[in-house]
Amino acid sequence: MARFFSTILLLLALALVAEVSGSTNGGPYQLTSAEGSVSIQECPQKCDYRCSATKHREPCLKYCNICCQKCLCVPSGTYGHKEECPCYNNMKSSQGNPKCP
């Protein structure tokens, strides 16, 4: 029984490593992004992935690129994880809503 659980834990750990080390849009994508970790030239590629799961693709791309160019950071994944980029997370619209997707 103990061997069964250790095998399950090993498989889960390998799945997590595979997920973290995966790539998106032709290049590795960092699990956590730090401000300044993205060059302005990389913003369209990072935002293309960030906005890939939304129905509102055009506005998402517009605001993601604005935020990326200012903060030089895009959070990992297609949703959430904004705490990885405080600048990106703290940008607000004129109505006080989050500006960055």
Rank of each mutant, 00 (worst) to 15 (best):
L10W: 06
S37G: 09
R3V: 15
C43E: 09
H56M: 13
Q30W: 13
S94K: 14
E35Y: 04
A2K: 15
A13I: 11
T54Q: 03
E84H: 11
P86V: 00
E19P: 00
L12V: 11
G26T: 09
E83H: 07
F5L: 15
P44Q: 03
I66Q: 07
F5E: 15
N25R: 14
M91T: 05
K82R: 07
C73V: 01
I66T: 12
R50T: 02
V17A: 13
K70T: 12
V74Y: 01
N97K: 10
H81I: 01
C71N: 00
G96D: 07
E83W: 11
E83G: 00
C71F: 01
Q41W: 05
A2P: 08
M1G: 12
S21W: 11
E58L: 14
K92Y: 04
K46M: 10
K99V: 12
L11S: 11
L61D: 08
G36M: 05
G26H: 09
P44L: 03
L72R: 15
A34L: 10
P86S: 01
E35A: 01
E42H: 06
T54D: 02
K92H: 04
L14T: 11
I8C: 08
T7G: 09
S52M: 02
Q95R: 12
L12E: 02
Q45T: 12
C71K: 01
Y29W: 12
G96N: 06
V20S: 09
F5I: 10
Q41V: 04
S6E: 10
L61R: 15
A53I: 03
C47W: 03
L14K: 05
I40W: 04
Q45A: 10
C67Y: 02
P101W: 03
P98G: 10
N65L: 09
L14I: 10
C51D: 07
A18M: 08
L14N: 04
N25Q: 11
P59H: 06
S76D: 09
K46Y: 11
K55N: 11
G36R: 05
S23W: 15
E19A: 14
H56P: 00
E83V: 02
Y29E: 14
C60L: 05
R57T: 12
T32H: 10
V74T: 02
P28F: 14
G26S: 09
R57S: 07
A53Y: 10
C85I: 00
Y79S: 12
Q45L: 08
A18G: 11
L9M: 14
C71T: 02
G26R: 08
S76P: 00
